[in-house]
Structure formats: structure tokens, C-alpha cells
Design a protein around this nucleic acid. Structure first.
Lengths: 230, 230
DNA sequence: CGCTGTATTGACAACGTTCAACGGTTGTGG
DNA sequence: CCACAACCGTTGAACGTTGTCAATACAGCG
């Protein structure tokens, strides 16, 4: 667990927490490692634990009654996940699937009150986190209501590059495996349309594609495309 | 203020609060009455106050940089509004416009901590409220991603009937003025399409329209339409 | 009584989905 | 090590839902 402590302390949410408190929290945590394609929890399952992602990358998905799937959000290292329901109901609203090998700490849901009482700052952080997610959801609703698919894809890709980008040459590499299908499920379209759009971007040098890979060669150009007012 | 006390106490969020605490809160509140079309606050304005709607009905809107508008949500009596940002930033994320004459209580943002400390139950309620909104937002994203316009409109209308419905004969009347444009902005489509859909529903006896009015003649039929699995 | 905002409706275009076929890559098991 | 299956991606063509453009009608209000 010693390794974890310094990692956890590097996350913004915990950086102002005294070492002693962090150790106390870690003492109660169970770490869990997951292979790509496996899930930390499944939609509709009992919400027994909440988690903190240490490393890796997760996709949180929901399926509709008729079997269609959407990606609700992507979880990055340092994010809490599976806790929205700690506040309300007994089951998970979505499924958390690992996009790559991932490691997370988990706590039983019953410890949530203790978790936020441990530090006022942490309580505020948790509130801010959920407020931020609400804002992100509204942004997505706004985009889906008003923008055509190509701009939505541009926004989504840029957002990913900011959250999970790694500099590579003059461009930015999306630093985890992501398929056209995934992007489609994030933007509310089909993998066919995404494929066509990325192909056309590649033709004019904006991006460089690949199997489950994406490199932004011209972030500024993409940004211009995303902001284009008509 | 005596009138307000019993009204406030009738809201679920306050029903378990001791009378003394409610009086203390009300003593700090300023009531504000607004005419249809006016706003309690505007998008981007400094978040100086948070509010509790006593009666009336509000539409919270956001406008995109290029001038398009969407309705983020509808505020009903008993709802807190304008407080999401009390937790995060200094400006309002949207504009709260009165759909009809409305009365709200307001408190300065600085009083928010005192407000939730007044009662643990209230703090939990506030958290649940914001969690619920996040869930609603995800529902909307899921619908916009996977469903065609007609089913989205059906879902939206049914939701409105549950939140703001009044029995009228065998049907349910939407109990505040709502235009086709409003419904369009809630579902991510155009008023033209909404008008066409409502006209076709009226032709088969599902609803009865009118200027800024809507009556559900056959809620069960609409529900069936909304649930239709292809 | 005219003005403004709301609603209806038709014609048309288009964006994006659906259907279909194919090519390439990865990983697995013989 | 190779063959094969499974998955991911690409592309073409046709269709359809829905947005856009446009004209008209109607209600409320000053």
C-alpha cells in the first residue's frame, strides 16, 4: 500500500489531505485490478462499493431496454466512480468497463459518510465533482441538440485529448484504446458516420487514425472546426 | 411571511424540519415575485442568490455561442434553483425565466453553508436533488442518442404531465403555458417537427392542443408510444 | 384594428442511418 | 508457425427521418 499513498496524494482531490488521514482511508481500501473488457460493476447490480481509479481507463456505459448502448463518460486516473448511487439508491446506474488494464481502490458503500467526513475539503471536492458532471452532461445535451455530428465528434475528440492526451511529435495522442464504435456511443451517432468523418479528417491531415488509436495532428485545426459558427 | 411557512413546510424537502428552523431560514429570506417572461437571473450573471420556488413555473435555458437556445429543465414549486453554482463558481450557468407569474424565496449565496448545516436531512436532500438531476440529464442523453424524435417528444410530454399535470376530465392538463417551441427546445428538435407530431397525435385522439396549452386525452396510449420497442 | 408571437402545413433538400460487402489486424489454437 | 476466427475499420448505395425554407392562418394585446 505504500506505493499507493504517494499516487493518491498526487491527485488533486487528496493533495491537501494530511498524510495520516490518507493512510486511514487506505487502510480501509481494497485494491482491485481488472483486465481490458472486464467490468468493476454492472448496470443494475447492487451498489456495494465505490471506487477510486489509480491507473488505467474506464468506460461507463448504459444500455437501453432495447439493447442500444451509450457511453456515459470516461473515467480517468484520480476520478471517483460508482459513488453517485452511494447518495441515492441501491444499484449502479451503469457498467464500468476497463478499456485497458486498470487498478482501482474500493471501499464499501457504508463507508461513504466516513469518507466525506474525514475532510471538509474532500466533501466539497465530491460535491464539485458531481456538479461538474452535471455541467458536462448539460454541455453534451446542448451539443446534441444544436450541433451536427461532425462538430460533436470534433468536440468529443478534443475533450478526450485534454483529459487523456499525451504529446507525440507536434500532435496529441489519445492515450488509451478507443474504437470508432466508442466515439459513436459518446456522440450519439453510428460507427459508420464516425469512420467516414475520421477518414475525411485524415485526408486533410487533421488526424491520423489506426486500430483503436487516434492521433491529433492539428489540434488547432480541429478546434477551429469544432467552433465553426455555421 | 406566515403564509409562506405552511407552504414551505408542505414541500418534501422541508417536511421533517422543525418549525423553529424553518422560521430561522425564512427570517433570512427575501421573497421575489416575477412576471411571465422576466428572469430571476441570467446566464453568465454573478451568482449572488439561490432560490426556492414557492409557486409558478420556470424554464431554465441556456444559449449557445451561436444563439441557439435549449431548455435545461423546468422548475416546479418546491424546487431549489440557482444553487448548482453555489458549490462551484461565481456565475449562473443558465437563465431562469418565468413561464407564468411566479414567487420565490431567495437567500444570498453566502448563506448556503448555513442553509445545509441547519439540518443534516436537508443536506442529504440537496445531494439527492443534484444526483437526481444528473440522472435526468443522462436519461435525456440516452434518449437523444437512441430514440427518434416522436418517442422523445412522447417521453417529454409524459414527464411534464407527471411533474405539472392536473386532472381534467379523463385526461391530464399540462398546468402551465408551454409552446411548441419550448417542447422543441426540451427534446432537441424544431418547433415544426413538434407541431407536426402533435397534430398527428391530435388526429388520432391522443392529445388536444391549443395555444401554449396541451391536454393529454389518452396518457396510456402515449405511454405505449413512448415505450414502443421499435 | 393592426401588430406580434404562436401555430399549421407543404415542398424540398440533406444529413445521417441502414444495409451490405469487403479488407485488414490481432490474437488464438492446432 | 501458420491458419482461422473474431473484431475493427472502410466504403458504397439507397432510403428515410428530420431540418430548412416559405407561406398562411390564428390568437392575444395594445
Amino acid at each position: 500500500m505504500k506505493l499507493d499513498k504517494s499516487v493518491v496524494k498526487s491527485f488533486p482531490m487528496f493533495e491537501k489531505m494530511p498524510d495520516g488521514d490518507i493512510e486511514a482511508l487506505l487502510a480501509l481500501a481494497v485494491s482491485r485490478r481488472i483486465c481490458p473488457g472486464d467490468a468493476f460493476f454492472e448496470q443494475g447490480g447492487p451498489a456495494t462499493h465505490f471506487y477510486l481509479l489509480i491507473n488505467g481507463r474506464l468506460k461507463v456505459t448504459q444500455v437501453t431496454p432495447d439493447g442500444q448502448q451509450i457511453i456515459v463518460r470516461v473515467v480517468h486516473p484520480g476520478d471517483l466512480f460508482g459513488f453517485a448511487r452511494a447518495l441515492r439508491r441501491a444499484d449502479y446506474p451503469g457498467t464500468a468497463i476497463a478499456a485497458m488494464e486498470s487498478l482501482a481502490l474500493s471501499w464499501p458503500t457504508e463507508l461513504w459518510p466516513q469518507f466525506i467526513n474525514r475532510s471538509p475539503h474532500l466533501a466539497v471536492s465530491a460535491l464539485n465533482t458531481i456538479g461538474q458532471r452535471l455541467e458536462e452532461a448539460h454541455t453534451r445535451i446542448r451539443e446534441m441538440s444544436t450541433q451536427e455530428v461532425e462538430r460533436r465528434v470534433a468536440h468529443t475528440v478534443i475533450r478526450l485529448s485534454k483529459q487523456a492526451g499525451r504529446a507525440e511529435g507536434t500532435g496529441i495522442r489519445i492515450d488509451f484504446p478507443i474504437s470508432r464504435q466508442d466515439i459513436a456511443e459518446m456522440t450519439g451517432t453510428t460507427l459508420h458516420t464516425v469512420s467516414r468523418i475520421l477518414s475525411s479528417w485524415e485526408a486533410i491531415g487533421l488526424v491520423k487514425g489506426g486500430r483503436q488509436k487516434l492521433l491529433l495532428r492539428d489540434p488547432a485545426g480541429l478546434q477551429a472546426l469544432a467552433n465553426a459558427l455555421e
